[in-house]
Simulated scan of single mutants.
Amino acid sequence: MPVTEVHKDADNLTMTVVADFAAPLQRVWDAYVDPRQLEKFWGPPGFPATFTRHDCFPGGLSHYTMTGQADPTSTDLEQEVLTHGGYWEWLDVKAPEGAEPTTASFEVRDGFSREDGTPNTDLPGMRMVFGFEATPEGTRMSTTTYFAAVEEMAQILEMGAEEGMREAMAQIDDVLTDLSSFAAGRGTTTTLLDDTRARISRVIRGSVDQVWRAHHDPELVRQWMLGPDGWRMVTCEVATEPGETYRYEWEPDGEGEGFGFTGTLTDSEPPYRSAHTEQMIGDPTMVAYETTFTPVTEGTLLSHVMSCPSQEVRDQILATGMTDGMETSYQRLERVIAA
């Protein structure tokens, strides 16, 4: 089991969990900043987490829910399904640097949330510092939780915080050994998050600054955002400030009708996060996207969380072959960055 030490200090209101992994520091770091991997271990067995937002930069936010049966060992399919929500407010990030980083850390304010995603102030919040240190055997990670009061510390420990941390750490090994599944070149993937949301992800070979610029410089956008072969971009009006509208239109090289999208940029935190609305020109259906640009080992993890007005709309959009079209565009994007 990865957990090697647990220190509970009632005088200083802290709990520190130390875990050792036979994997490079950067690999362990990636498991935390990539929501596709984090979902595989953040949460005890039987209660997997789903991250609907994961901003890995100071000032960012993460939202997640853990869902499972009241008794995971039971075969009763009609038993109650429980859902627990949580959030992180990202306070500080010291990402790994260099080809063989020796230290890294991030700090979050961790709290519980209600079904609508708002903070649940009836339960105590905590401050957590995740520290990563390279060792001869791999990586040592120290997770220190800071409590605001003795009563809050006792309440959280009584709720099973230590056991939950041990169980989560025990699941990381399986994620770390799966080195190829999340490597660049795997292609664009889609994960259904709930009835109306989906996450489309891909690792792009290039730095965060390069990938961000390629999404916001009209000259670069025209070179790669083309979808399947045989189409050309005839309108490229990029929004760069919140409140501005954008408009993209494409036409086939041969005969046939073109199409386009328009919408409004609703949030922008360069070069890590943006959010916008989208609707096909001529169709009133509105969809919302939140996009994050996260540095990982192989380049930049690009994640789009798509929120639709209904499950039917979500499934219709995915059935158009959108993921395949995005993969073709992202292959062009990597060539543009390389050039």
Rank of each mutant, 00 (worst) to 15 (best):
D194M: 04
M225G: 02
D71V: 10
E137P: 01
T297G: 11
T294I: 10
T139L: 09
D11R: 14
E78C: 07
G325P: 10
F261K: 10
A104M: 08
R332C: 12
L192E: 14
L179F: 12
S303H: 05
R127L: 02
Y289Q: 13
S142A: 15
G260F: 04
Q311H: 11
R314C: 07
M306E: 02
T291K: 08
V33Q: 03
R27S: 12
V313Y: 04
Y87K: 08
E255I: 10
Q37F: 08
A183Q: 15
I337P: 10
G263D: 06
M141P: 06
R213W: 00
E133P: 00
D178W: 02
V238W: 06
E39T: 05
G59D: 00
D173I: 15
E89C: 10
H304P: 00
T320C: 09
T294Y: 05
G254R: 08
G98W: 04
V313A: 02
W224N: 02
V221L: 13
L38K: 14
G263C: 08
F147L: 01
E78F: 14
G321K: 07
T240K: 11
E312W: 04
F57T: 00
E257H: 11
P2G: 13
E251I: 06
E241M: 12
T291V: 10
V6Y: 12
V234C: 08
L265P: 12
I337G: 10
F112L: 08
P45I: 00
T143C: 14
A19N: 10
E219R: 10
V3A: 01
L265N: 11
V305E: 00
D194K: 04
P24K: 07
V336N: 02
M169G: 10
A99T: 11
G299I: 05
D194L: 00
D324L: 12
P284T: 11
S268Y: 02
D9R: 08
D194V: 01
Q331E: 13
V18E: 09
A154D: 15
D315I: 07
E327F: 06
R109D: 11
E97F: 06
G125W: 04
T323Q: 09
D11Q: 15
T102G: 15
P24F: 01
G321I: 07
M322H: 07
L301C: 07
R332W: 09
Y64N: 12
L82Q: 11
A183D: 09
Y87Q: 09
H304V: 14
E107G: 01
G227C: 00
V203N: 02
S113K: 03
V175E: 02
T139Y: 00
G164Q: 09
V81A: 03
R197W: 10
E162P: 01
F182G: 13
A288Q: 14
